[in-house]
Design a protein around this nucleic acid. Sequence first.
DNA 1: CTCTTGCTGCGAGACGTTTGCATTTTGCCC
DNA 2: GGGCAAAATGCAAACGTCTCGCAGCAAGAG
Lengths: 155, 155
Amino acid sequence: MKVHKHTKGCFRSHQDSLPELTHRLRKGGAHRMTGPREAVLDAMRAADRPLAIKEIHELLKGTECDLATVYRSMHLLCKSGMVRRVEFGKGGRRFELIPERQEGHHHHLICTECEKVVLLDDCLLDQVAGRIASATGFKEITHQLEFFGRCPACQ
Amino acid sequence: MKVHKHTKGCFRSHQDSLPELTHRLRKGGAHRMTGPREAVLDAMRAADRPLAIKEIHELLKGTECDLATVYRSMHLLCKSGMVRRVEFGKGGRRFELIPERQEGHHHHLICTECEKVVLLDDCLLDQVAGRIASATGFKEITHQLEFFGRCPACQ
DNA sequence: CTCTTGCTGCGAGACGTTTGCATTTTGCCC
DNA sequence: GGGCAAAATGCAAACGTCTCGCAGCAAGAG
């Protein structure tokens, strides 16, 4: 079982530049790179874990970006495939940036006390999904998986 | 990959009787079996899939059970280990009855169009959880996993 | 049957999220 | 560089979901 010990380095590694991000955004339709959207993307790039909408809004307090705009930006970024929505149980919905040309995805292990997040390496379930597809006739199978537990510091 | 083709039969198989359920409820503390709680349990026993709070409340329209009471009942039943909360993505939170002396748990495959639910057989991830525990030092590891896709009828 | 304790209904209200609308901004074309 | 149409923003109002306080009611122990 391989896990990432240095969470920060891992999340910060996808340093897509602003022009790159703008390009990705435009690909999806007539969308513009605006001040608020850039600020939202910056916040996510700087973060070392998936962020909640409220957290992003607070990080943007300096720029006075409206909460509704953060919601609208996240919807757009999700639809454009630049951001992934993660269900964090008690911690609610979080969002994380998807690096350009990332293949596969990972899951998280979340402390039920302090919400510390540990990244788990690439998903082990894609083959399972294939088998489910042939057994049930379902298509386009995706999944949502997170682990929860008590981290060493909280035990 | 083994799946349950006949969802109804599967969910209905845990016909714990009312006295049994009452006993399970009492075990957890000074809790009483009341009309509304019985109605909630009946609704879940009759259902062929996990239900949302709102659905349960609507099923109970005849008995005029208050929405707040449904919420309170579900909290209690979860805390007593009689009910499991399942995150259904877009479909929100759902709840399903846990049969007496059930070992292990299962996951669901949910159609993203019509919300049809297929039960998947017992969880394959418990060993994975053990490996995560020793790799990270986390304890009491649980997980939340659901699959989504397009069912044959919706393709 | 009575009494205690827990439960319910009701209303208020706390969050999280979405929407309509008037105004501002962006990116494009000239 | 300036002007234009389309898109994005801020603000406020409205939702949906879920929680809480409180007064009255009911379950179940003695």
